[in-house]
Simulated scan of single mutants.
Amino acid sequence: MKGMICERLDGPRALRLADWPAVPPGPGEVRVALQAAGVNYPDLLMTRGGYQHKPALPFAPGMEGAGVVAEIGPGVEGFAVGQPVAVTARSGTFADTITVPADALLALAPGTDPAVAAALPVAIKTAHVSLVRRARLRAGEWLLVHGAAGGVGAATVVLGKRLGARVIAAGSTAAKRDFLRELGADRVIDAEPGFAARVNEITDGQGADVVFDPVGGAVFEESVQCLAQRGRLLIVGFAGGTFGVPDLQRLQRGEGQLIGVRAGEIGRRDPAVGAASRAAMRELLVAPEFAPIVRESLPLDDAAMALERLDGRRAIGKIVLRTA
């Protein structure tokens, strides 16, 4: 068995293809033979020791994947050897095998493209928890999505449209803005400083009812300036390096809300909510409008290059690693 292993916290170039043990499943666990793995920004942070979850060295990055059930541990029901599944994990999918609790699996229909199934669980879960659970987005509301051309941002654009919102998507390059138009965003804007004035213009001075911000820093601070009355600003991440300092007086005047999002923790804190989230993910994973988010497929040993593309903001949509 093989995996892309991180043995020191020196960033993506510290990864190397190495032997990786196949762990027999224990009670309540399933071993999956992985065919593909999605690449996410937290994977990059983990290779530097900069993410909230810090797996012990050595480890394989990777928070999502897809493949087929290879072994089933005692007490597991509802899965069969050879069944196609998607996997979510805190780490470990940059490999050709992973052993996880059975509730970390999503059953897939036969014939489902493993590359699509591997690329979307984290993005769809983050988008769903953000818009449905935390912001309670309503049809007709204005939704501003930052980092919209990345995997999570793109899924948020698509889900926002599916929920009936009017979506403003911010992209930093012409190629990214073209991609966002292809996804169906109602309005596409430049992500450069000054975007708040453009958002206020588009919304006739109202501002965005919901802002999805995985960037932080100056983007977060400027987003307060285009938040609607009683608007909700979702704090999803800090790809820009810092969280930023909000204008609290403006938030107070506008009765605005700052809402933190930790989509990966929701099921661990509340199993019932986690089960509902997984049910929604199963439905959305096969929705055809999400498939265009997957833009590139690379061999497993190109994992470092894939992470460096995320680091340099060069990726559009999701990158998938072929693990089999």
Rank of each mutant, 00 (worst) to 15 (best):
G312M: 05
E308W: 06
V152P: 09
A66S: 14
D209I: 00
R177S: 01
R136E: 15
N40T: 07
A127I: 13
M4L: 05
R31F: 07
P21K: 03
A117F: 12
A304Y: 03
G164C: 04
Q35A: 11
A148F: 05
E265I: 00
K318T: 07
A218C: 05
R134V: 05
P288F: 07
G241S: 08
L258V: 07
G92Q: 04
G256R: 13
H146T: 02
E289F: 00
A154K: 05
S223G: 13
F243T: 12
A185E: 03
A303L: 04
L234S: 07
G164K: 12
D311K: 00
A148N: 06
F212K: 01
A315C: 06
G73K: 12
G267K: 02
G75P: 10
G92V: 00
K318S: 12
G207V: 04
A56D: 13
A275P: 00
K54T: 15
P58G: 03
A115S: 11
A37Y: 01
V188C: 02
A228F: 06
G267L: 03
A196S: 10
L285P: 08
A263S: 14
A109S: 09
R134E: 08
V157M: 10
C226W: 12
G11T: 13
A169T: 00
G216I: 02
L9K: 04
L44G: 10
P193S: 10
D302H: 09
V158D: 15
K2A: 09
